[in-house]
Design a protein around this nucleic acid. Sequence first.
DNA 1: GATAATTTTGCCTGAAAGGCATCTTTGCCT
DNA 2: AGGCAAAGATGCCTTTCAGGCAAAATTATC
Lengths: 207, 207
Amino acid sequence: MAEGLRERKKQETRIALSWAAVRLAVERGYGNVRIEDIAAEAGVSLRTFRNYFDSKADAIAAREVDRTLRIAEELRARPAGEPLWTAIRVAIEKHFALGEEGHGGRTAPDEKWLAGIRLMMSEPALQGAVLKAHAKAAEDLAAAIADRTGTSGLYPRLVAEVIGATRAVVIAEWLRGDPPRSIAELLSSALDQVEAGLPVPDQPVRE
Amino acid sequence: MAEGLRERKKQETRIALSWAAVRLAVERGYGNVRIEDIAAEAGVSLRTFRNYFDSKADAIAAREVDRTLRIAEELRARPAGEPLWTAIRVAIEKHFALGEEGHGGRTAPDEKWLAGIRLMMSEPALQGAVLKAHAKAAEDLAAAIADRTGTSGLYPRLVAEVIGATRAVVIAEWLRGDPPRSIAELLSSALDQVEAGLPVPDQPVRE
DNA sequence: GATAATTTTGCCTGAAAGGCATCTTTGCCT
DNA sequence: AGGCAAAGATGCCTTTCAGGCAAAATTATC
């Protein structure tokens, strides 16, 4: 209750707008959605949409921002004594396992999220916004890492960015997935490699 | 000479447009430059500008794309026997040491490039475009790494993205630089940490 | 040279971006 | 409660952007 009704309503509107943006874009295709439609869907005026987001792309990417920021939250929630990289693994795993926004039920890969991701990856106009979202998330993550480890300077940022990079690669590889592999497996493999300093695999491996 | 006059002219126009875009944006501020001005500066029509770039931001980021793609080129130019990470170090160092576009003279940090970077980091509307540029560069780099190491799948992409992340952190840290530190030193330190698997520093270090 | 393929350009329409003034809603104080 | 101030929502307006389309210009090919 740090904030009152006003603040909560703003959050709700913001989320409603960005959900509407994602939903409409997934259904009709990014180019066929006018911000006017998005605003109508969320029950606010076109002008108000602009008070919340700088662009249509930002509205769509906002879902991804919120989602990605959770990684830092999860990390902060890990016990202080836990080794950093163990905590990181758990935090990212939860991030990927995460079901639908507010639900607790064990949902499958979460179709909504998946559809959103595919949309963002395929539409060039959205890629920039998504990457910006991840950059923002990395800042948060760096702060969390700095707090946890008591380090400053290069280290926390480096770790945060590398985690972001790992996450990106895992998702890309998983989406391409043919044959499909479990995210958990890919993630685990990727983190193992990163933690080992990314040495060149002895033999040409297809993993 | 692989391509004729037509192809060369297109390249020239493209580069002229993006240089003009950067120069004007640095001088007047991003928001005060209309694409019409950019087109005029490069001696083509406004409509032609659109044939080359999807947006003002993309035109500015194009300089960064070209520059960043050189990392992959440098890597490919390294002797085949050289260990991957040694080759990577050299490639990135050259990337940072790079003077002005076409000159060979030992230029200082290259004011034009620096001004461009500052512009791109500060203007939110440009951040997305720059990140997209780096993503594209990472793809190239991943291909180069795959070729060099004979690996496929997760590994090359992981290395490419991690290098991109490292580069980003080094630049950010260097720009913040207060007191200023040499890029070479920051880069070296960052790569050392990455190659070591990013273990938590023993003592709170400010590096 | 003549013809075909590409580019460049002008024109035009629809959408987006964002400044400004006004009207509402919310927060807070008496 | 009543009322005032702050913050948000909305409408209106202007400028800029995005991109389709076809005519004019330029380059390539034979």
